[in-house]
Amino acid sequence: MQNLRIAVQKSGRLNEDSMKILKDIGISIDNGKDQLKAAARNFPVEVFYLRNGDIPQYLRDGVVDAAIIGENILVEKGTDIQFIERLGFSKCKVSIAVPKESNVASLKDLNGKRIATSYPETVKKFLKAQNITAQLHQINGSVEIAPNIGLADGICDIVSSGSTLFKNGLKEVEVLLKSEAVLAVSPKISSDRKAILDKIQFRMQSVLKGQESKYVLLNAPNNKLDAILELLPGMRSPTVLPLAEKGWSSVHTVVSKNQFWEIIDGLKANGAEGILVCPIEKMVL
């Protein structure tokens, strides 16, 4: 069987998050320092460690079959490359920022201004759609310094926490797009390798679903059981088991972490006791 060739960022946070999800789905990679390629011990996969900006071309050429890559890179360099799964990590924004003392307060104020960026295609498309004309300076590296040295009136770059903007005396004036890691696929992938990728995608979906959910166990008085069950979504329906103590039942269910506290408040208000909340490592649907 041919190995699936999957690319990940060579270093940085996206590399760490990518290797973590591969580990979480049971793929063991032996990668030494400065290795450019490593094979899995227990799965037909080879991992290629590449520069993020080079990955779209490798996918396009079929050098790699799939990649864990920032969506922002696909918007900039790989609009012809499809992705098949959002992975929920390495979230960021691509934003325009200007010096705090700048008189630029909105998008229309960028007309005629100079913008330094590592994402020229993304900025060009966005400004054109907004009917804004600006002069772009492409910079690879520390874009934030451009306004301080008089090269540009503003910048467009990745923003994660916003601390880099703050340290460089910049303020965000426009968000062009929001990005996260995605699982992208080469248009030249073979059917055999696509079958392997399907297995990887299924495992990733199980891990991601688990991260979004909590397993909840509780004791419910039988006279309030119907009201409590109304509060619980469950995958199909909650599991209800009689307790040794007469008039009580044990209820087991899965709850979305986004709804968690509202549901817990409702359960307590309806007499639920002994509520236990457990993380879910993986959830296979």
Rank of each mutant, 00 (worst) to 15 (best):
K209Y: 08
V207A: 06
L225A: 10
L177H: 07
F83K: 02
D109R: 12
N148R: 15
D226Y: 13
E71D: 08
E46A: 05
K108I: 10
K10N: 06
V216E: 01
I139F: 08
E262Q: 15
G210Y: 09
D34H: 09
K246I: 14
I6C: 00
P233M: 15
M19L: 15
A67F: 10
K199I: 11
E46F: 03
P56V: 05
I275Q: 06
P221M: 10
Q259N: 15
D109S: 07
K10D: 14
V284S: 12
G234F: 09
L14C: 02
G274P: 02
R51P: 01
I158Q: 03
M283V: 08
V123M: 06
A97R: 01
E16N: 10
G210Q: 07
M1R: 13
A116T: 02
I139H: 05
G247A: 11
K268F: 14
I139A: 02
V284P: 05
E76C: 05
D265I: 12
G150Q: 02
R86I: 00
L59S: 04
K37Y: 07
V240A: 07
P120A: 02
K77Q: 03
D24C: 02
S256G: 13
T253G: 07
L229W: 06
R86E: 14
E230I: 11
L176P: 00
T253Q: 04
A272E: 03
H252P: 00
K167Q: 10
L197C: 09
G169E: 04
A195T: 11
V207G: 03
W261T: 15
I264M: 15
V94N: 07
E85C: 04
P99G: 14
Q201T: 12
S256H: 08
N42H: 10
I149G: 06
Y119A: 08
